[in-house]
Write a protein that binds this DNA or RNA. Structure first.
Lengths: 67, 67
DNA sequence: ACAAAAAGACAAGTTTATTTTACATTAAGT
DNA sequence: ACTTAATGTAAAATAAACTTGTCTTTTTGT
């Protein structure tokens, strides 16, 4: 899974910690998701999309290896 | 988390087993997600959205208890 | 260059998602 | 009423998400 969290954070001028607080998770969770180490739950994906005011698809997208 | 999987299946005239096969998971996984027992990963949510040709937000939505 | 803030990384532990197997219930067609 | 397909449910086992804590590295501002 690819993601555009870093870009979205830049657009909204937000640190990992700020995003983590808004999303209700730890900073490390944001960090590891952002670096592609694991895939978030749908709840967290929806929360992030809400925070950035975009659709989930604009943040997360499937890759060939996900199928 | 609420979901509209049952409705989407009805629209596309698809059984849980067919959806499961298309999404690459077990029927029970579809069943338990559909009945709200747990939340799928973002990969699975994106796959379902792709199968039904809608955005993730049209299938899954946050509830007060998710925040 | 220095200090502070932000980000990256890693390990151990807890919680939650997912699979498998198996059985019970419901719905639909004949 | 009978049969079959579809769905609901549940326990046990495994995999993956998430937390907490800590330490290192990079970035940014002065």
């Amino acid at each position: 899974m690819k993601n555009t969290i870093k870009v979205q954070r830049a657009i909204h001028n937000m640190t990992q910690e700020e995003l983590a607080k808004k999303a209700g998770v730890s900073r490390q969770t944001i960090n590891t998701i952002e670096s592609g180490k694991y895939v978030p739950s749908t709840v967290l994906a929806l929360k992030m999309a809400g925070i950035f005011n975009v659709k989930v698809e604009e943040i997360f997208s499937l890759e060939p290896s996900d199928e």
